[in-house]
């Protein structure tokens, strides 16, 4: 069992996962399945963004879906209305999401816990309302058609499902790679120190505003990239893209997978997207199951699937290490005893 655990979290397992993703289109029963998987990858990218600000940095951002929509609309407007080429528009979409994120972050990140969550909830709604009402820019409820597919530079046709799948996969790998590097770095540790508490982090000389803002902008950039990819896959955007329910969906994915874990966003998103797919009849009513699921998880398994697994593994590892070094174990025991006597 323990060997299985180390296998699952080691380098080998990552390569295995990647190999599975690479051959998936060959094994899939239909193009539709490939399409679903590609969309799951795109959502996962956005969830990785949410994980940076909420999972690592501990700030519950309820506007994440809004930034996803901003990325999608930026790409749509630039390519369909202004005739931009795909890649410049794609970069611009990410930058727009980052810039709006910086603006929102400057105001909202000065707020503590509840206020931040409430504020971002409202920001998410403002984005939704603006997209719905600002017809000159967004075409309102009609939405935008004719969005460019990713430009294959004459080599690949990304308007086909399978090539697009590999493009989405490439971006997902990039997203995970960067998230992993971030989490293991001093910067990631700084974010996690903030999650542990503002006061303690500040006493360690951490500039709260600067670090929170950086985490927030990174997260909105992820959302923007995901949104732009989404728009170029569906080739249509409408105000529904900004529906706050998407934010709640992403929180569910993250919660199921595990806040602040590297593979939680992937596990949660892909897992739930497929469960929802296989329960097609549930599509509209999926929240009847997800709602209570969120509550039950948050009460009984707040660290999600991946987090719980890692916690279990860490305990196993340290136990194994202690069993090997009996001297260290003996040194610890008296202190523990004394404490229980106190």
């Amino acid at each position: 069992m323990h060997r299985l655990a180390s296998l699952l979290s080691g380098r080998g397992s990552r390569l295995f996962l990647l190999a599975c993703a690479l051959v998936f289109p060959l094994l899939a029963k239909s193009e539709y399945q490939v399409y679903v998987m590609a969309s799951a990858f795109i959502w996962a990218i956005a969830v990785y963004g949410l994980n940076i600000i909420t999972g690592y940095c501990g700030q519950l951002n309820l506007a994440h879906g809004g930034f996803f929509a901003i990325g999608a609309y930026a790409l749509a407007i630039l390519t369909a209305d202004h005739g931009w080429n795909f890649w410049p528009a794609f970069v611009a979409a990410a930058l727009v999401a980052a810039a709006v994120g910086a603006l929102v972050g400057l105001v909202s990140l000065r707020l503590k816990e509840h206020f931040f969550a409430i504020f971002t909830l409202c920001v998410g709604f403002i984005i939704y309302l603006l997209i719905d009402k600002w017809e000159e820019l967004t075409h309102g409820a009609v939405g935008i058609r004719g969005i460019a597919a990713p430009d294959g530079l004459g080599l690949v046709d990304f308007s086909q499902t399978v090539p697009f799948y590999y493009l989405a996969l490439a971006f997902l790998v990039l997203a995970i790679w960067f998230a992993g590097r971030l989490a293991a770095s001093l910067l990631g540790r700084t974010f996690m120190a903030i999650r542990n508490g503002d006061a303690l982090a500040q006493s360690l000389g951490i500039d709260l505003m600067r670090n929170k803002l950086l985490a927030f902008v990174l997260s909105t950039t992820y959302a923007g990239v995901a949104g732009a990819l989404y728009a170029s896959m569906i080739r249509f955007v409408g105000p529904e893209e900004a529906n706050p329910n998407h934010t709640f969906d992403m929180i569910t994915y993250l919660l199921v997978g595990g806040f602040g874990t590297l593979f939680g966003p992937l596990a949660g998103t892909v897992g739930i997207v497929w469960i929802t797919q296989s329960l097609q009849f549930l599509e509209d009513y999926r929240m009847i199951i997800f709602g209570p699921l969120i509550v039950v998880l948050v009460i009984f398994m707040p660290r999600g699937v991946v987090g719980t697994f890692l916690g279990w593994k860490l305990r196993k590892d340290t136990e194994a290490a202690r069993a090997k070094g009996p001297r260290a174990g003996a040194k610890v025991a008296p202190a523990k005893e004394a404490n229980t006597n106190a």
Partner: peptide
């Protein structure tokens, strides 16, 4: 998050 769960459930 739990409050959001309740919200989603009731609406559905």
């Amino acid at each position: 998050i739990a409050a959001i769960g309740i919200l989603l459930f009731l609406e559905a």
